[in-house]
Design a protein around this nucleic acid. Sequence first.
DNA 1: CACCGATATAACCATTATAGTTACAACGGT
DNA 2: ACCGTTGTAACTATAATGGTTATATCGGTG
Lengths: 138, 138
Amino acid sequence: MKQISTRFSMAVHILSLIAVNANEITGEYIAGSVNTNPVVIRRIMGLLKKAGLVDVRPGVGGAFLLRTPDRITLLDIYRAVNLLDDNRLFGIHEDSNIRCQVGRGIESVLQSELSEAQSAMERRLAQTTLSQLTAKFS
Amino acid sequence: MKQISTRFSMAVHILSLIAVNANEITGEYIAGSVNTNPVVIRRIMGLLKKAGLVDVRPGVGGAFLLRTPDRITLLDIYRAVNLLDDNRLFGIHEDSNIRCQVGRGIESVLQSELSEAQSAMERRLAQTTLSQLTAKFS
DNA sequence: CACCGATATAACCATTATAGTTACAACGGT
DNA sequence: ACCGTTGTAACTATAATGGTTATATCGGTG
């Protein structure tokens, strides 16, 4: 199966760098640390900006957080870069045959069960802040 | 972002049908209820067989569970059809620059945090059994 | 045995997400 | 005015997905 995109882990990496060195690092430097192309970094930065987590100084370069690192959770970052249809992690097949007893009921039952599972994951992500992460390698 | 494959929800649908009508339904009928091509059903059935959840009578047709529905959880089904590298739901970018303080530490820290989040989701999936599901539309 | 409906599997296809890349416009301080 | 930076568009290769056709095999029935 396909894993959740590495955009997420790269975004955490990016924000960690900014948290540690606000306004001192360029996209070029970040790309060097993440070990990828600068455009990939800028794309993710665009999502983080759209989510209101960071801002960037165009022209001159350098980025800074719009919230303190203890108020940015992994869930905030996850939501910023992983845009899902209707915010549903699990895909559910549609158009089940409504003339079948199982086909009729399966969608709504699964919908609620799977959204519970998704919530459990998200609650765990919400428990960890950026400052807790950076504390582990500073 | 890409959602988790509908293979999972289709697998739950399939097993629900088998739980309700053991040995009475063909792949053709299941395909009609799921509203897809029979080959798609057989592919998923193959995964479920490999996981030891069901068995099928070749030639004559019909499938049956190898465990009672109260001993099959959503996690069992999820694991049967969603094969992940090293069982990791979250992809993590590799080859971070080890000469950077953040790049050096990010991978292992993220690995443990994200596996916690994955576990939280899986624990929730493990709480629901096939019999609990079918009870809701029978 | 011959047939027929069923399962098993390979092969192919169109669609989509992803991550990387090149190219170019715009910004802003020196 | 220059130059390093950010912002985007466009293109690419790769891979997962879900569907489809085709073919082989199985097993009970006439």
